[in-house]
Design a protein around this nucleic acid. Structure first.
Length: 673
DNA sequence: ACGTTGCGCCTTTTT
DNA sequence: GGCGCAACGT
């Protein structure tokens, strides 16, 4: 990255009087611009570090941003900056304003899986756990939340039976969360946004606290996030948002790229700065990317250019099937590693769906090439981790019924579905949580004998441990607790093989050692509810990943296109460039090719030096062989810059030699310049 | 209350 | 082809 800012970058940094939109193309140095701007605000414009907030989407980029700022501002000032994800910002607001929101501070955060489970429970009678219907329901609720609709508003505007039903579920859903003293991920944004909207005093206070706001990846904001931004900046409109409409690939998750245009409407004095110089890709890669994305409609015109060399032709390779595709790619990597003296970590294989990774894994293994695969099931989605997290949540928040239900009978303690249901009924009648209900005398009317005593024993254990966690030796308390649970025996019992049990136990140990480490961190030590703070950060996936960083070695990277956003590699292989895969079948059906094209654009612009696109004529999918057509996106690339041998039928030896010579001549010409 | 079989599904997944 | 879930059987 350039140390000196180019003129556009300087414009983006120095303009602090107008609301500012920075359209930052791929590889145009936007992180650098944000870091410089933060520094400029503090060093030259008299802002207190604590008055400057920078918001990102991932913990990783928040961490990176803070590190950059600390580098430039020094540790003392840098650490006072408010650099966080949207969700953490929301969380902090909710914590501080818990009273105004009618919440207790030890609330739980339900993740997507918890919410799904809750919706399933709430709709049991009508939908009979029809997975698709529940998923759709979740989407509808999410859309309402994005529009800041309360259940009442949703009911009022509901059109038709289904919507009315969904709105009623929404109402029960909100009520249930409240009863558990819990929020979901959307609430972390929604609740502060609504609070600011409805409470002038609180809004003004926060507008005073945060005097300048920077937003990264702005194209990925949803309606609620934009509302939060609007409320936070107020009429002074001291903000800079940085985004790229061409890299909007999360609309299926509620991101609303139209927020870029909305900005112009809501802030008429908006200034727009375009960062069009790319510092990453060769001219040729950029030309291909531009040519592809030209097929999309644009509100803001933008043309990326590069000062780097023209680069090698972009290879397009057709193979017979996915097996051959993987062998072609892997042997190419292995050859190129030798000829260019490259590291394995210089190579990335990018694909549309996780299932495509499997065959590459197999082939890489055969070739004895080390690789790293990202994606698939996340650590926190694992059953054993969710179990332990549920225990922790219940220790922090005794009203977290979702956690209670999950672990009441894990490990087995003879609290079956029947007992849970009776306990639940009683709790509902008395308007108390299940853990509380477990310890009431009156429960005897609903639950008798063995069931009753099992439930009571469980509740007592949780209560006792929770009070032990008030002290200082939390890590020790937890270790003893897990041991007393015999969770390790339970894993052996419930796993199919001993090896699986061992692996899962190792995961539990890893989680515990993270917690131990986090408890020692200074910012946690200051908290009154240390365990609560740790659990919250874990649910938001906000943890220090030192181990992982250290382990990052010399390995070929296997990534989905979504996961590749923000990264760069000298050599990129974009595989499975076929109709129905890239663009994906469902996108074709839903007529949403533009987003697929952006996805492809993101993939192409990851490449610094060489780019190889591959597709297979046949591919095994869902067990049977299907024939494939080359992706339409390949035809949108500049033919002159492609090395696509099979395009015009078989090429004669002569022609191939001529092409090689032409290529060499071009290279020489470039060298002479 | 637990294990087994069989059916249906199958994109991406920042927090 | 493989996984998760649900229905069924013991």
């Amino acid at each position: 990255m350039a140390y000196k800012l180019n003129p556009q970058q300087q414009l983006a940094v120095k303009n602090i009087s107008d609301p500012l939109l920075v359209l930052a193309g791929a590889g145009s140095g936007k992180t650098s611009v944000i870091a410089h701007k933060i520094t400029y605000l503090v060093k030259s414009c008299g802002f207190e570090p604590s008055q400057v907030a920078a918001v990102t989407f991932t913990n990783k980029s928040a961490k990176e941003m803070r590190a950059r700022a600390i580098q430039m501002l020094g540790k003392t000032a840098g650490e006072k900056l408010r650099v966080s994800t949207f969700h953490t910002l929301g969380l902090n607001i909710i914590r501080e304003e818990a009273q105004a929101l009618g919440m207790r501070k030890n609330f739980s955060i339900f993740d997507d899986q918890d919410c799904m489970a809750l919706l399933k429970e709430l709709t049991e009678r009508e939908l009979q756990s029809d997975k698709k219907a529940i998923y759709q329901l979740q989407e509808v609720l999410g859309a309402w939340k994005n529009k800041l609709f309360t259940p009442e508003q949703a009911i009022a505007q509901a059109d038709g039976q289904n919507e009315l039903y969904a709105a009623k579920v929404y109402k029960r859903y909100v009520r249930h969360l409240k009863a558990c003293n819990a929020v979901d991920f959307d609430d972390l944004i929604l609740l502060p946004a609504l609070l600011f909207k409805n409470n002038t005093e609180v809004r003004h206070r926060w507008q005073g606290k945060i005097r300048y706001l920077l937003v990264d990846e702005y194209q990925d904001t949803n309606g609620a996030q934009y509302e939060l931004v609007k409320q936070l900046v107020g009429p002074e409109a001291k903000f800079t948002v940085v985004g790229d409409d061409d890299q909007s690939i999360y609309s299926w998750r509620g991101a609303n790229p139209e927020n870029l245009e909305l900005l112009k409407k809501d802030f008429p004095t908006l200034e727009v700065v375009k960062l069009e110089q790319n510092y990453r890709c060769s001219k040729r890669v950029l030309k291909a990317a531009n040519s592809l994305i030209d097929n999309n409609p644009h509100v803001f015109k933008k043309r990326l250019w590069s000062d780097l060399s023209y680069g090698e032709p972009i290879r397009v390779v057709e193979t017979g099937n996915e097996e051959k595709e993987s062998r072609m790619v892997v042997s190419d990597i292995s050859a190129r590693k030798l000829t260019e003296n490259a590291n394995y970590s210089d190579f990335a294989i990018l694909y549309r769906g996780n299932f495509q990774a499997r065959i590459f894994e197999k082939t890489l293994m055969e070739f004895k090439i080390p690789y790293r695969i990202s994606g698939g099931q996340s650590f926190f989605a694992r059953a054993e981790i969710r179990d332990i997290m549920a225990y922790l949540r219940l220790l922090v928040n005794p009203t977290d019924d979702a956690a209670f239900i999950r672990i009441a009978n894990v490990p087995r303690r003879e609290i079956g579905a029947m007992s849970l249901e009776r306990l639940g009924n009683y709790a509902r009648e008395r308007h108390i949580s299940m853990l509380e209900a477990s310890q009431e005398m009156g429960l005897g009317s609903h639950l008798k004998g063995k069931g009753l005593s099992a439930v009571q024993r469980f509740a007592n254990m949780i209560r006792n441990t929770a009070s032990d966690c008030q002290g200082d030796a939390i890590a020790d308390v937890l270790k003893t607790f897990i041991k007393a649970l015999s969770y390790d025996s339970w894993l052996i019992e419930s796993s199919s093989t001993p090896a699986a049990a061992e692996y899962r136990w190792k995961n539990v140990q890893e989680l515990l050692s993270w917690i131990e480490g986090m408890l020692k961190e200074t910012n946690i030590e200051q908290e009154s509810d240390k365990l609560g703070a740790v659990v919250t950060r874990l649910v938001l996936r906000d943890r220090q990943e030192k181990d992982k960083d250290d382990a990052e070695g010399n390995e070929v990277q296997l990534l989905t296109l979504h996961a590749a956003k923000g990264l760069e590699f000298p050599h990129v292989y974009l595989v499975g460039m076929e109709e129905e895969l890239m663009p994906h079948k469902s996108a074709i059906e839903e007529d949403n090719i533009d987003e697929e094209r952006r996805l492809c654009y993101v993939g192409i612009t990851r490449a610094k030096a060489t780019l190889t696109l591959t597709f297979a004529k046949e591919r095994k999918r869902f067990g049977s062989q299907i024939s494939c057509k080359a992706s339409r996106f390949l035809d949108e690339l500049p033919m002159d810059d492609l090395d696509w041998p099979s395009k015009q039928g078989p090429v004669s030896e002569d022609e191939r030699r001529d092409r090689g010579r032409a290529h060499l001549a071009k290279l020489k010409e470039m060298l002479n310049r």
